[in-house]
Design a protein around this nucleic acid. Sequence first.
RNA 1: UGGGGUGUGGCCAAGCGGUAAGGCACGGGACUUUGGAUCCCGCAUUCGUAGGUUCGAAUCCUACCGCCCCAGCCA
Length: 569
Amino acid sequence: MPEQKETEAKTNFIYTMIKEDLEKGALGESPVHTRFPPEPNGYLHIGHAKAILLNYSLAKTFNGLFNLRFDDTNPVKEEQEFVDSIIEDIRWLGADWGERLFFSSDYFETKFEFALRLIRAGYAYVCDLDPDQVRAYRGTLTEPGKESPFRERPVEENLDLFERMRKGEFPNGSRVLRAKIDMSSGNLNMRDPVLYRILHSSHHRTGDQWCVYPMYDFDHPFSDVLEGITHSLCSIEYSDHRPLYDWIVDRAVELFPEVVKYRSRQTEFARLNLTYTVMSKRKLRRLVEEGHVNGWDDPRMPTIAGLRRRGVTPEAIADFQEKVGVSRADSTADLALLDYCIRQDLETRTPRLMAVLDPVRVVITNWPEGKIEDLEMENIPGDEEAGTRMVPFSGEIYIERDDFMEDPPKKYFRLAPDREVRLKSAYIIKCEEVIKDENGTVSELRCSYDPLTKSGADNSGKKVKGVIHWVSAAHAAPVRVNIYDNLFTAENPEEAEEGDFTSQINPHSLLVLDNVLAEPAAAEAIPGSRFQFLRKGYFYLDPDAAETGKPVFNRTVPLRDSWAKKQKS
RNA sequence: UGGGGUGUGGCCAAGCGGUAAGGCACGGGACUUUGGAUCCCGCAUUCGUAGGUUCGAAUCCUACCGCCCCAGCCA
């Protein structure tokens, strides 16, 4: 026999790169050090979860450090509300930054000093061009730019102007600090990028202390260097910024060595896309603001908050992330894979309950008048420690409307006239009579039960193919159920044939079921707990649902349904 | 038409000169008091295309093609 193939840890090109760095001793004394750098201007989504988990797990597997650092360099867009939600979401995901919570704004003073040093060394200058002029001077993708008339301003004048910018002597947009690099570079980012701009705007942390704020390209690499980030991971669209990132790091090493903890390097990977949804902050914001969903935490949203409220677990998200992998190629992961990961996680950890989503009444004609029998049911099949519970059974029950068919197709194993079916953990019943209302819809089924077929003690010799769930009429707990479907009908809403992505919104993405009858235990369930409603799916007791007078269960994900699949084909 | 990326089955993704991992999806079967779960089996003669190098190429070379990103004082 060949020896068992060793189970390898999930790897990707970044993991491999770090491993090689370590083997070569390229990091010197530094531990592997990563960071997640959100801008607090919106809610985190599952795409961010990929970055968070990637950075965190890399630091963890290499015994390194992981920072949470808010990139808060633009006060006009950023708010404390988002800082709070981001912290909550990352914590919930399980990424632990320990004491290492930082803000870019923590280093504003040091950054200003760095800017001063750039000026003194002749690497930066104050430019008086207005925004339109800067754009015009920049050139185009195919034509080189022109040098600013202020490019050769003397150092002393630059210093004086920059200090006065800080003091607030100039209005927004009147001047900027620019790096002196190369106006003819094929890479637009190198055409004398803006380092600082004037923003007379109150910052959520520093208040009115500053009116000049650093730009991302200046701020980010320098923050990395200050924190000792060894591997600065970001998405592909920053590839073009890498030369500038390196330029800033090099200048820091050259001019400000006493604060440089590590010569940080940037590595890019493809961001995550998902079928049947959109992922950009801008689009998600529109969904919220235009009322297509009920807020950032609407369970239909791909936000962390939305997924959480739908009942998805952080473990399922981590598993999904790992299964999707990391590469540099543009990709769109299949939502079916996420669903799979969710089911897989919930399968073994979720207690079962019976709930009838669309009830039809069943009267058991030969059941002893007034008798109530408590039946024992497993909480989690295959998991004895999860125990059992008692569920009341009686002569009047409800079953699922689609578990009965008057004229069933071939291979339909459920209830039909004169046919038998097993009631889960109870008895086998036979449909004797169908009662309809004036519209012709079935209003009641009259059935007989076979006392010899009691679950666990069946000595009738009967074999039935179908097993259905039920709930005793007198004991049923009324609950509300939210059935969620994809928010978009198109696999890739961004590629809408006509109109924008909102034209692809699924009008049936939310179905509210208000006549659901569940077994009694549902009424006592703790908000925030998860259940599998037998044969129906996984559900989450919404802790934030509006007051409805009854529990509200959100469907996290349906169970696989091979019968429904067969019906379609 | 400038610069930077990227193309492996329906969707992801390994592979790094020795003869296409794995997962999801899909199809078939077994089992089943959830048509769930679980378990089997099947699923790329071929790696964007065309040439070339080599005993041997998804891997090296050349050319071409497709797709993505970049012209914020956003990040």
